[in-house]
């Protein structure tokens, strides 16, 4: 049995013939679409390394069946930068050293982008920490991550102000 599924991945619409309904969104990206930026740290929704945006919302792609997301719009870490031009969150992660081994980093960045879009944190570091607590980092880069998210958020707001003005 084959299941036809249409997904938009990083702006490109793809129609896929899935031979197996068990394929998770994460395994689809990693093993079948060569989008290996999203990482598998636990495969059980407990580490956040697989975080992607689905229809603009951050979720754990390891617990999402691809077939169930027919029609979804998916943004992965590969779709965030414009060529050499990094997304402000990516640039801020480098500037604040919000990474060490880098394995959790794609998930952290997608989570941070989702968090900023959710608009719930203000400039409160405590809310950012709580909002980023679904992404484990064994290296312990948390303080850099928090600083990066706060800075990236400011730069977004700056951009928005300029656009309004």
């Amino acid at each position: 049995m084959s299941f036809s599924t249409t997904l938009t991945v990083n702006g490109v619409s793809r129609t896929l013939a899935l031979d197996d309904p068990r394929v998770t969104l994460l395994d689809l990206l990693r093993e079948r679409l060569d989008l290996t930026g999203s990482k598998k740290g636990c495969d059980r929704g407990q580490c956040g390394a697989c975080t992607v945006l689905v229809d603009g919302r951050r979720i754990n792609s390891c617990l999402a069946l691809a077939i169930s997301h027919d029609g979804a719009d998916i943004l992965t870490i590969e779709g965030v930068a414009h060529g050499e031009q990094l997304h402000p969150v990516q640039a801020a992660f480098i500037a604040h050293d919000g990474l060490q081994c880098g394995f959790c980093t794609p998930g952290q960045i997608m989570s941070a982008i989702g968090l900023i879009q959710e608009g719930q944190t203000g400039h409160d570091p405590e809310r950012v920490r709580e909002g980023m607590s679904g992404n484990l980092c064994r290296c312990g880069a948390y303080s850099g991550i928090t600083a990066a998210v706060l800075e990236a958020q400011l730069s977004f707001e700056e951009t928005e102000r300029k656009q309004v003005a």
Partner: peptide, 9 residues
Amino acid sequence: GASPQLRNA
């Protein structure tokens, strides 16, 4: 409960 990602789903 859980994490922001899980609550989103």
